[in-house]
Simulated scan of single mutants.
Amino acid sequence: MKRFDKQFKLEAVAMVLEQERSVPVVAKELGIHVNTLYKWINQFENHKEDAFPGSGNLLPENEEIRRLKKMIADLQEENAILKKATAIFAKHQK
Protein backbone atom coordinates (compact mmCIF):
# COMPACT_ATOMS: atom_id res chain seq x y z
CA MET A 1 0.00 0.00 0.00
CA LYS A 2 1.40 3.37 -0.98
CA ARG A 3 1.96 5.88 1.83
CA PHE A 4 1.61 9.62 1.42
CA ASP A 5 3.30 12.19 3.63
CA LYS A 6 1.51 14.92 5.52
CA GLN A 7 2.47 17.63 3.02
CA PHE A 8 1.02 15.68 0.10
CA LYS A 9 -2.25 15.15 1.98
CA LEU A 10 -2.48 18.81 2.97
CA GLU A 11 -1.89 19.91 -0.61
CA ALA A 12 -4.52 17.48 -1.91
CA VAL A 13 -7.05 18.76 0.64
CA ALA A 14 -6.18 22.37 -0.21
CA MET A 15 -6.85 21.70 -3.90
CA VAL A 16 -10.42 20.78 -2.96
CA LEU A 17 -11.14 23.20 -0.12
CA GLU A 18 -9.21 26.29 -1.19
CA GLN A 19 -9.22 25.98 -4.97
CA GLU A 20 -12.78 24.62 -4.93
CA ARG A 21 -11.93 21.79 -7.30
CA SER A 22 -14.01 18.64 -7.30
CA VAL A 23 -12.86 15.63 -5.33
CA PRO A 24 -13.09 13.19 -8.26
CA VAL A 25 -10.98 15.45 -10.51
CA VAL A 26 -8.29 16.05 -7.86
CA ALA A 27 -8.18 12.35 -6.94
CA LYS A 28 -7.74 11.35 -10.57
CA GLU A 29 -4.99 13.94 -11.12
CA LEU A 30 -3.12 12.73 -8.04
CA GLY A 31 -3.66 9.05 -8.75
CA ILE A 32 -5.49 8.33 -5.51
CA HIS A 33 -8.88 6.82 -4.81
CA VAL A 34 -11.78 9.25 -4.39
CA ASN A 35 -12.64 7.75 -0.99
CA THR A 36 -9.08 8.31 0.19
CA LEU A 37 -9.33 12.00 -0.60
CA TYR A 38 -12.72 12.27 1.11
CA LYS A 39 -11.18 10.62 4.19
CA TRP A 40 -8.29 13.11 4.18
CA ILE A 41 -10.70 16.04 3.87
CA ASN A 42 -12.74 14.70 6.79
CA GLN A 43 -9.62 14.24 8.92
CA PHE A 44 -8.47 17.76 8.10
CA GLU A 45 -11.85 19.29 8.90
CA ASN A 46 -11.95 17.45 12.25
CA HIS A 47 -8.36 18.02 13.36
CA LYS A 48 -7.01 20.96 11.31
CA GLU A 49 -3.24 21.30 11.84
CA ASP A 50 -3.15 18.12 13.95
CA ALA A 51 -4.47 16.01 11.06
CA PHE A 52 -2.16 13.39 9.56
CA PRO A 53 0.20 12.99 12.55
CA GLY A 54 2.27 10.36 10.73
CA SER A 55 3.23 6.78 11.33
CA GLY A 56 3.73 6.01 15.01
CA ASN A 57 2.53 9.42 16.10
CA LEU A 58 -0.77 10.17 17.78
CA LEU A 59 -3.16 13.06 17.75
CA PRO A 60 -2.68 15.21 20.87
CA GLU A 61 -5.86 13.93 22.53
CA ASN A 62 -4.84 10.31 21.90
CA GLU A 63 -1.36 10.98 23.28
CA GLU A 64 -2.93 12.39 26.46
CA ILE A 65 -5.16 9.30 26.79
CA ARG A 66 -2.11 7.05 26.42
CA ARG A 67 -0.21 9.05 29.05
CA LEU A 68 -3.12 8.93 31.50
CA LYS A 69 -3.64 5.19 31.03
CA LYS A 70 0.04 4.60 31.80
CA MET A 71 -0.23 6.79 34.88
CA ILE A 72 -3.28 4.81 36.08
CA ALA A 73 -1.47 1.51 35.54
CA ASP A 74 1.57 2.77 37.46
CA LEU A 75 -0.61 3.96 40.35
CA GLN A 76 -2.48 0.65 40.44
CA GLU A 77 0.81 -1.21 40.63
CA GLU A 78 2.03 1.06 43.44
CA ASN A 79 -1.24 0.49 45.33
CA ALA A 80 -0.88 -3.28 45.00
CA ILE A 81 2.67 -3.11 46.36
CA LEU A 82 1.59 -0.90 49.28
CA LYS A 83 -1.29 -3.25 50.14
CA LYS A 84 1.10 -6.21 50.23
CA ALA A 85 3.59 -4.28 52.35
CA THR A 86 0.81 -3.22 54.75
CA ALA A 87 -0.30 -6.83 55.11
CA ILE A 88 3.26 -7.95 55.83
CA PHE A 89 3.82 -5.23 58.44
CA ALA A 90 0.45 -5.95 60.06
CA LYS A 91 1.38 -9.62 60.32
CA HIS A 92 4.66 -8.77 62.07
CA GLN A 93 2.89 -6.43 64.55
CA LYS A 94 0.88 -9.29 66.10
Score class of each variant (00 low, 15 high):
2 K>V: 07
3 R>F: 14
3 R>G: 13
4 F>Q: 00
4 F>Y: 12
4 F>M: 00
7 Q>F: 07
7 Q>G: 15
12 A>L: 01
12 A>G: 13
14 A>T: 15
15 M>N: 11
15 M>E: 11
16 V>D: 00
16 V>K: 08
16 V>F: 03
16 V>E: 01
18 E>M: 02
18 E>G: 15
20 E>C: 12
23 V>A: 06
23 V>I: 09
24 P>T: 00
24 P>F: 00
25 V>M: 12
25 V>L: 13
27 A>M: 02
27 A>L: 01
28 K>S: 11
28 K>G: 12
29 E>S: 09
30 L>R: 11
31 G>S: 05
32 I>G: 09
34 V>T: 13
34 V>F: 10
37 L>A: 03
37 L>H: 05
37 L>F: 03
38 Y>W: 10
39 K>T: 11
40 W>Y: 03
41 I>Q: 02
43 Q>G: 09
44 F>L: 00
46 N>L: 08
48 K>F: 04
48 K>I: 01
48 K>P: 10
49 E>R: 06
51 A>M: 02
51 A>Y: 03
52 F>Y: 01
53 P>C: 01
61 E>M: 02
62 N>Q: 12
62 N>P: 04
63 E>S: 10
64 E>I: 06
66 R>H: 09
68 L>D: 03
68 L>F: 05
69 K>G: 06
69 K>W: 03
69 K>H: 09
69 K>F: 07
71 M>Q: 14
71 M>V: 14
72 I>P: 14
73 A>Y: 09
73 A>E: 08
74 D>C: 08
78 E>T: 14
79 N>Q: 05
81 I>P: 14
83 K>D: 11
84 K>P: 15
84 K>L: 12
84 K>G: 13
84 K>V: 11
85 A>E: 14
86 T>M: 11
86 T>Y: 15
87 A>T: 15
91 K>E: 10
91 K>S: 12
93 Q>D: 07
93 Q>K: 14
94 K>H: 11
94 K>E: 01
